[in-house]
Computed example of a mutant assay.
Amino acid sequence: MSDICRLPRRVLVVDDMLNVGGKECGLLVQLQILKESSISTDLCLLRGEGELVERALEYTSDHLFLNRKKGRFVSVESLFRLRRYIIDKNIQIVHCNGWLDSLVVLIAVWGLRVSLVRTVHGHLKGFKLAIDRFVTSKFDSMIAVSNSFRRDLLRLGYKESNISVIPNTYDPCMKPSSTCIKPPPLRIISVGRLNKAKDQMTLVKAAKVLRSHNTEFVLSLIGTGSPNYIHSITRYLTENCLEPWVRMCGRHMDVATILRKSHLFVFPSTRESFGIALIEAMACGLPVIASRLPSTEEILENGEYGIMFEQGNYRDLANKIIKFALNHQLLEEYCSKSLKRASEYSPGVFRKRLLDVYRTVLT
C-alpha cells in the first residue's frame, strides 16, 4: 500500500509533436503503461501535430496543445497557459521528451513545486547542447535510454548525479508467431525512417551481393523519410535490376504482422541512442543482424543475442545474411535468443523502472 501511495496522482507528459518514429512510439507505450498503472496522465504538445495524436489521446485524461508555429518559440501567452494548466490540474510530475519542450516547461514552472523528469532520446550539438545541459541540470531526474548513451551524455558534460538508465520498451502488440519455421524465400525486413543515418543503402547494396550468389530472398523496407534519400535508393534498385527482390513499402501501421511473417530483421543504422525497431523485431521472435554500435552491442550483448556486422560494410552484411539463408537451424536458434533478450526490455520491466524514478523524485 505504501508503494501505491508514493506514486504520483497526476503526470503531465510533454513533447513537441507526435509524428511516427521510434521515440514517439515509445512515448505512446509510456502513456499506455501510466494509464494501466491508474495514474492520471495528461499530454501537452507544443505544436499539437502528428499522426499519432489521436492514439495518444486514448490513454490520457486531458490534453493541452500550445500551437507553436514551426521554427518559432512558444508565445508568452502559451507559457502562461501551460503554467495555469499545471496549477489547475494539480500536476505533480512533468515528464519531458525533448530539449525544446524541457526549456519551455522550465520557464513555465519557475517557482512552482512540481517535479521535473526528462527522457533524453538523442544527441544534440551546438547551442542546443549548451541550453539542454543547463536546463536538465535544473531537473530532478534525467533518463538515458541505454547505458552507452548515458556514457555519451557524461562525456558531453551532463550532470552525473541525476542520470538514470531506463531502456526503451516495445508495444505489447509485438508478439511472436506460433512458429519459427516459415516457407521460403528468405523474407528480410528493415523498419525505420529512410535516411542516411539509418543507412538502408548498405542493406540495398547487400541485396545486390545476395543476387550474385543466387540467394532466394525478398527484402522489404518499411518507412518513409528523406525524398532525396528515397530517390537514391530507387535509382540504385533500377540501375541494378533489383526491383523484383527489394520492395519499398512506405509507412505501414501494422508493423507487428509484417514482422511475424518475416524470417530476418536487419538494422543497418550508423547512429542510435537505443534502437526501438531492433527490440520490436526481437519481441516478435525474429533473428536480427545489426550494425556494430555501442547501443546495439549493449542490446545484443556484443553478438550473444544477434549477429553483428561492421557499420557500412555491405559485403560483411551480405555474408551474414547468407549464413541464415543456408542454415535454418541458425534461424531457429536466434529466434529463441531474440525472445529471451526481448523479455528483458518488456513493458513490465519498463513500468517498474519508470515508476521507481517517479517515486524517487516525489520523496
Rank of each mutant, 00 (worst) to 15 (best):
V53C: 12
L46V: 13
N67R: 13
S75N: 04
E51D: 09
N90P: 00
G48S: 12
V76C: 04
Y85I: 04
E49G: 04
S78W: 09
E54F: 09
R47K: 15
L79K: 11
D62R: 11
N67I: 00
V53E: 09
V53M: 14
R47S: 14
R81I: 00
R72A: 00
D88R: 13
L46E: 07
D88Y: 03
L64W: 13
T60L: 12
R83K: 05
R68N: 05
K70H: 05
E77D: 12
F65Q: 04
R72C: 00
I91M: 07
G71F: 10
L45T: 10
R47P: 03
H63K: 15
L45W: 10
I86R: 09
I86T: 06
V76Q: 04
T60F: 06
E49K: 15
E51H: 09
H63P: 05
D62Y: 08
S61W: 04
K89W: 00
K69C: 00
A56E: 11
K89F: 01
F73K: 10
V53R: 15
E51N: 11
L66G: 05
K70N: 03
E58I: 14
C44A: 12
L46C: 08
R68G: 02
R84Q: 12
L82N: 04
L52M: 07
N67W: 06
